[in-house]
Amino acid sequence: MQQQQLERMKDGKGFIAALDQSGGSTPKALAAYGILENAYSNEDEMFKLVHEMRTRIITSPAFDSSKILGAILFEETMYRKIEGMYTGDYLAEVKGIVPFLKVDKGLAQEADGVQLMKPITNLEETLKQANEHHIFGTKMRSVIKEANTVGIRDVVDQQFDVAKKIISAGLIPIIEPEVDINSLEKGKCEERLKVELQNHLNSLSENELVMLKLTIPTQANMYKELIDHPKVVRVVALSGGYSRDEANEKLKANDGLIASFSRALSQDLNVNQTDEEFNAALSKAVDSIYAASI
């Protein structure tokens, strides 16, 4: 299964759905879906509601392996079930979609123009659980806001330090050093980030493979060398706050870059839609993101 999933991620046509809104971003995701904060009174109720939203997305006929290669899950989702199966198993066995797990614990305070990841205190146990729940890979996010060489180097160093532990556990890490789309130095940030990524990729051993999740670059095809690098399974793009139409247009200009969208995927979905309306809205989103990714 792991080898089949690796080949699918490397060569398959389609995109990765990001369904990994965490505790901090879940209220926003629910509000966008039409469920306001007065609809739940504690974290358990909130996570139950967001799992119902994710279940509706994943079980929709529009959420199909012919266009969706993988899906990134929040840790809480990994422990929950869809139609009697753990979410990762349902994705892999019923849908034919490769499951990933968000493992970071959020962002630290900004320093040197970047936000590093907070310490991942329980990484070893999380990776053990990921393997037990048949997860293929992981994802972790940092943010770059300024073209600060020290800060960008720190971000990439931290990402690869954790990535090597993930690789040792038999999983494929998605490294996500997001460049803020509102940065006044976005293009310069991307140039410096690319250099740091190349340095680390070149130092990986033969069996160490990673994926990259990057902001769609200001200069089209900026990341072509990363996409073609032998240690990189796939380079995927985050929508980063762009609308779906804008993200799709920018993505189309980059050969070999595929989507890993979250808000841009779910922006037209609403809890009050009938199943027919919901599936039609999701189908339209999936079709447009797929077209931009190929």
Rank of each mutant, 00 (worst) to 15 (best):
D157G: 06
D255C: 06
K213I: 09
C189M: 03
I35E: 02
Y79L: 15
D44I: 11
I68C: 02
I82R: 00
K186L: 07
I166Q: 14
A163Y: 05
T121H: 12
E246F: 07
Y90W: 04
K81L: 08
Y223D: 12
L282F: 10
T26D: 04
K250L: 15
Q158M: 11
E76W: 10
Q109E: 15
A247W: 05
L193Q: 00
V150K: 15
K13I: 10
K252H: 06
K139Q: 11
L107E: 08
Q273N: 00
E146P: 02
T126V: 15
S25P: 09
L91I: 02
A31H: 13
D64M: 02
A32D: 15
S25T: 15
K188C: 03
D112C: 08
E52F: 01
M211D: 04
S142E: 10
N131I: 07
N38S: 14
A280E: 13
N122V: 10
P177F: 00
G88I: 05
F136L: 10
I227F: 03
D64H: 13
H200Y: 08
E110R: 11
T138F: 04
G34T: 03
I175L: 15
E37N: 13
V150L: 13
A281M: 09
I227G: 03
A253H: 10
G256M: 11
E75Y: 12
R54N: 13
N248E: 13
A92P: 07
D228Y: 06
E132M: 12
D287Q: 11
I181G: 06
L116K: 06
P119N: 06
A163P: 04
D245I: 05
I16R: 01
L251T: 01
T218E: 14
K188S: 12
L171N: 07
E52S: 10
T126Q: 15
Q273A: 02
Y79V: 07
I216C: 04
I35G: 01
E125M: 12
D180L: 10
K102S: 06
K13W: 07
I175V: 14
D104L: 01
V50Y: 11
S262H: 11
G84C: 06
Q198I: 14
K139E: 14
I135A: 07
D112I: 01
D255N: 12
S22L: 06
E37M: 10
P177H: 02
N254P: 04
N207M: 06
S288D: 15
D245P: 01
T59P: 00
N122L: 09
A62P: 09
F136M: 11
Q219A: 14
I57E: 02
Q21C: 08
I135Q: 03
M117L: 12
P61V: 05
A130I: 07
E124G: 11
Y40D: 05
E146S: 13
P119K: 03
Y90T: 03
L269V: 01
S142L: 04
D228P: 02
H229N: 07
L209R: 11
G256N: 09
L269H: 00
N199Y: 08
L201R: 05
Y86M: 07
E7P: 07
L171I: 08
L214E: 03
F15E: 05
A280Q: 13
I294P: 05
E83C: 04
K213S: 08
I227C: 04
D180M: 09
S60E: 02
F160M: 03
M46P: 02
A259P: 09
I294N: 14
